[in-house]
Design a protein around this nucleic acid. Structure first.
Lengths: 155, 155
DNA sequence: CAGAAATACTCAGTGCCCTGATTAATTGCT
DNA sequence: AGCAATTAATCAGGGCACTGAGTATTTCTG
């Protein structure tokens, strides 16, 4: 008799949201390529030749997960990996032609999927949704390591 | 040069949100019990003696996942499982005393965590966040099986 | 220059999440 | 009663996500 209403738990809502998204992705975008895999491809289209760690940073995947995702992309020959001649610890990642094609093809579909996903909201509500969600996520992420706030200079 | 801004992708945002939540949960609620596990305990506090499938329905876990989660809860002796004498296909789930205690203890902490998680938003923004997120999730879930809309009568 | 510290990556272990196939029990229909 | 369809659960298999420990390479420092 002391049960809680899960609808008031943002974490539970986040999980449901992600599950719903996963489902829609599978039906509208691709059953082969997952959303995190697409994010990796996208990061490499934006900045070719990144190393593994940086890709993880860009798309929000930790070192282990990014290694797995990249492993799968390499197996499918959408990517390849070469040692950085400048720094033998790093692997440099490059898209194959097929990787670039796949990214281009899926970009169209993800746009359509996003529209369907957000269709229940009006245009203003959609911006609000992005704003609120992003602020919550940013804040929680910054609790992780109280290092420099977003947009800190490099080098 | 045809890269997309992931910040405009609700799915990517949902994933980040969930990751951030997971992190906060680990530090503020429990490293032993996960959020889905808590959801299962909570469902059984609300409705003791549910079967596995129904629990999954209540907390939004599919048949396979709910079986795994329940397995872990049983191993930790927070739950037990007995065949339904009325229907030998079902397992009926019951909280142990420790399960009830754990639920009660974590309930307090989850409330605190939710506050911290949503702290970047004002009170009105928080209700808006719930409303928008819930509508998106509901809509996407109903795309799954175009069965009866929410709130369909039972029995 | 040699040893210590930092960095990039890998590996092992745990948990969540889904689909499709299978098994066991019940219900419905002749 | 007997067989088909339905239903609850399991199992196999693939993918995402995190932590802690280990390896190799580079950089920092005395």
């Amino acid at each position: 008799m002391a049960a809680v209403d899960l609808a008031t738990h943002p974490g539970h809502l986040a999980r449901r949201l992600q599950q719903a998204h996963h489902l829609l992705w599978n039906t509208m975008v691709s059953e082969e390529i997952t959303s995190p895999q697409f994010a990796v491809l996208n990061a490499l289209v934006a900045e070719p030749g990144l190393d593994q760690r940086t890709v993880g940073e860009r798309v929000g995947l930790d070192r282990s997960t990014v290694a797995e995702v990249i492993g799968r992309l390499i197996r499918r020959e959408l990517l390849d990996k070469v040692r950085d001649p400048q720094d033998g610890r790093r692997y440099l990642l490059r898209l194959t032609d097929e990787g670039r094609n796949t990214h281009r093809r899926l970009t169209v579909r993800t746009a359509r999927m996003n529209q369907v996903f957000l269709a229940p909201l009006s245009t203003e509500e959609q911006s609000l949704f992005f704003d609120l969600t992003q602020r919550v996520a940013d804040a929680a992420e910054s609790l992780r390591d109280p290092g420099q706030p977003p947009g800190a200079p490099r080098s």
